[in-house]
Design a protein around this nucleic acid. Sequence first.
RNA 1: UCCGGGAUCGUUCAAUGGUAGGACCUCGGCCUUUGGUGCCGAUUAUAGGGGUUCGAAUCCUCUUCCCGGAACCA
Length: 569
Amino acid sequence: MVDERETGPDSSALAEKPSNFIEEIINEHLKTGRFGQNVHTRFPPEPNGYLHIGHAKSIALNFGLAKKYGGLCNLRFDDTNPNKEELEYVQSIEEDIKWLGYDWEDREYFASDYFEQLYDWALKLINDGLAYVCDLSSEEGREHRGALTEPGKHSPYRDRSIEENLDLFKRMRDGEFPDGSRTLKAKIDMAHPNFIMRDPVIYRILHAHHHRTGNAWCIYPMYDFTHGQSDSIENITQSICTLEFENHRPLYDWFCDKLGIHHPQQIEFARLNLTYTVMSKRKFLTMVNENYVNGWDDPRMPTISGLRRGGYTPESIRKFCEYIGVSKNNSIVDVTILENQVREHLNAVAPRVLAVLNPLKIVIENYPEGQVEELSAINNPEDESAGSRILPFSRELYLDRNDFMEVPVKKYFRLAPGKEVRLRYAYIIKCESMLKNESGEIVELRCTYDPDTLGKQPTDRRVRGVIHWVSVDTAVDAEVRLYDRLFTTEHPDKVEEGEDFRSNINPDSLEIIEHAKVEPSLKSVKMGERFQFERLGYFNVDLDSRAEKPVFNRIVSLRDTWANIVRRS
RNA sequence: UCCGGGAUCGUUCAAUGGUAGGACCUCGGCCUUUGGUGCCGAUUAUAGGGGUUCGAAUCCUCUUCCCGGAACCA
């Protein structure tokens, strides 16, 4: 038997294989027509801090779902606590979402815009005998709530008349009572096994200035009395939040039901955790205030602004969010997954340049003094359209100290006394001698070059090593900031008794190189530009950069199999 | 202790009663004027016990472990 109605739902999105449990739920909604054929999500930040990579997961999820199903995603600020929220955060959140590449179009909302409606709904609850004004203090309220295995006690104010409740609630709004003296509570069940359902507070008195409503209100609705209703007002279909709100779902449902309003489906997923990272506003604040980092946008911070300043691309963050998937498993994602995403993206798009971090001067004794050759270098082997550029070559060059070893270990392909190495895009050179200062440090290398090795391999021998270099005359002086992970352990919160995450902070997470030498094409770089310093890593131009002295941040190093070999032996 | 979740390679996500698969990591190899990129190959997993079934990661049951919850925070 074929049910003809099966042709009903437009199942183009449905037909696609769901990629996570949320899409399965949406497919089911589409099939049953619970919300017609609409998919309307929202990203609901509280404007009380900066967004981090965990928020990016939620943003990508909500906006991504809307896009996949041809629906919409709103931006809504959950601004019901005037004591914590600020306009500054609203602006930074907007900027971060835009930078990540998502667009809420004209659908930017604020829960505070719904205060009047919420107030009316509170009146309805009172009129229906489902809410009451309670004079218990916050401590008394807690005592009445009971314990894990014991039911709570009824508030002595639970059975006030509707008229009295109406009168008191109006007077709460009119500012007749001081902060904390009264609350409006939902009348549910003080014996409910879920604490959330034991007559939860839905309005509290707060004589505080709100970043949008100013002093219009001195009572503010609680999250539980705001979030679901805001979803409802905006015709949200799937209200996606993190696992810790699972306990709140019965209350979310209760309000929608008792108010008789559009009832979205709350769905919870596991928040993102990353190795070598902490992910809470409180800890971020500690790191900023105690100067472990230089502000919220320090490249070591997992904030969106930190990732942005540190050179991460929005594409790589989006790919990362897609890659890690969505589930209810409490998981800790390996931070190398994130690093690999940015490597993958930048490998495809970042122009290659030569930069010497720890300069060691060499003189090529058999190269004519004063001669300069203009050698051609490929800008990006992954992208032919990126073209090529000129690299000036001369008698005196800088090499990286890492690329020379006085006593080479086995399998070391780079420069050593009497050994040969290829200079990238140039000649093969041989180290003839070293000059040392009185304390025995090598200050200069004397080399010779083989003029017959430009653009070709010698036939009589194999030279495996290739190293980068910069010509002394034309080198540009630059500052380079080498960022490393902020923590030394995978799980920074795992600490001995009496310690906290601060004991796992990596003391060497930032190394500043004041005088790196970079090739002349980097003379006039613009803030935000990204490059691959060949053999070293990906770097971007920091906002501290100035014309006379560019400043580069290391976004992420290149994969370094040699370093792995050294580490193992 | 009560309520709500969760448990699959080292990590993460799949497999929705029918061959446990991908990616990252790791380890080999090929290629390479980046010890980069790319390519090929390999190792490794269903928390435990019982049950249903021709057949169970999947359904039932008991156990263990982990996470969240008793803010007038969100």
